[in-house]
Amino acid sequence: MNESDSYLEELEDFLGGTFHQDIDSPEEAINEFIHEASKECLLSTIKDCQDFLNSPLTIQEKESFIENNAEIYFPAISLSPLQWFNKIIEEMKEAVKMK
């Protein structure tokens, strides 16, 4: 991994640290992250997420990355990993406006 891929490391930390096996629900986990994070942290996380979405990885590679780093059973929430990922980005963007 080179320096331009540092967002992948940051995303691994974000997904693994926020959406781990001890959470009650993905919704509660993102709400807790948003509540505890500073505006700067949210902006940085959003940038890493957007870098990931704009990366040359295939859709399948992106979905696999999300599945491998977030402890979420996607069929239970009726969203694909990328649909869910885009949803949490939008939630973070909304939260930035309120901070």
Rank of each mutant, 00 (worst) to 15 (best):
Val96Ser: 03
Asp22His: 14
Cys49Pro: 11
Ser25Cys: 02
Ser80Leu: 06
Ala37Asn: 07
Ile72Trp: 00
Ile59Thr: 15
Pro26Ile: 04
Asp22Trp: 13
Ile88Lys: 03
His35Trp: 13
Glu90Asp: 08
Glu12Gly: 06
Gln21Ser: 14
Leu82His: 00
Cys49Gly: 10
Leu42Glu: 04
Asn31Phe: 06
Lys93Glu: 14
Met98Val: 14
Gln50Ile: 08
Thr18Lys: 09
Lys47Val: 12
Phe85Lys: 06
Gly17Thr: 04
Lys39Tyr: 10
Met92Gly: 03
Lys47Ile: 09
Asp24Trp: 11
Asp24Phe: 07
Lys87Val: 09
Ser64Asn: 15
Ile72Ala: 00
Ser80Cys: 11
Met1Trp: 10
Gln60Asn: 10
Ile23Trp: 04
Asn31Met: 08
Trp84Gly: 02
Lys97Cys: 07
Ser4Arg: 13
Glu67Ser: 14
Lys93Gly: 01
Lys93Thr: 06
Glu91Val: 09
Ile66Ser: 02
Ile88Ser: 01
Glu27Phe: 10
Ala70Trp: 07
Leu57Asn: 05
Gln21Thr: 03
Pro56Leu: 09
Ala37Asp: 05
Glu3Met: 14
Ile77Gly: 01
Leu8Val: 02
Asn2Trp: 08
Lys87Cys: 04
Val96Pro: 05
Leu43Pro: 00
Leu82Trp: 01
Asp22Ser: 13
Ser25Asn: 01
Ile77Asp: 03
Gln60His: 11
Ser78Asp: 10
Phe74Arg: 01
Asp13Ile: 12
Asn54Cys: 05
Asn86Phe: 02
Glu94His: 01
His20Gln: 02
Ile89Tyr: 08
Ile23Glu: 02
Glu12Leu: 08
Leu43Val: 13
Ser55Gly: 06
Lys99Pro: 00
Glu71Asn: 15
Ser80Gln: 09
Phe74Leu: 04
Leu11Cys: 01
Leu57Tyr: 10
Asn86Gln: 15
Glu27Gly: 04
Phe14Arg: 00
Asn69Cys: 05
Met92Thr: 03
Pro56Arg: 11
Asp24Gln: 13
Ile30Ala: 01
Gly17Ile: 10
Ile88Asn: 00
Lys62Arg: 12
Gln21Ile: 10
Pro81Met: 03
Met98Glu: 15
Ile88Asp: 03
Leu43Thr: 12
Lys97Tyr: 11
Asn69Arg: 15
Phe74Asn: 00
Asp48Arg: 09
Asn54Phe: 09
Thr18Ser: 08
His35Phe: 14
Glu90His: 04
Ser25Gly: 03
Met1Glu: 14
Gly16Phe: 06
Phe33Ser: 02
Lys62Glu: 01
Glu63Lys: 08
Thr58Gly: 05
Gln50Asp: 13
Asp51Arg: 11
Phe65Asp: 02
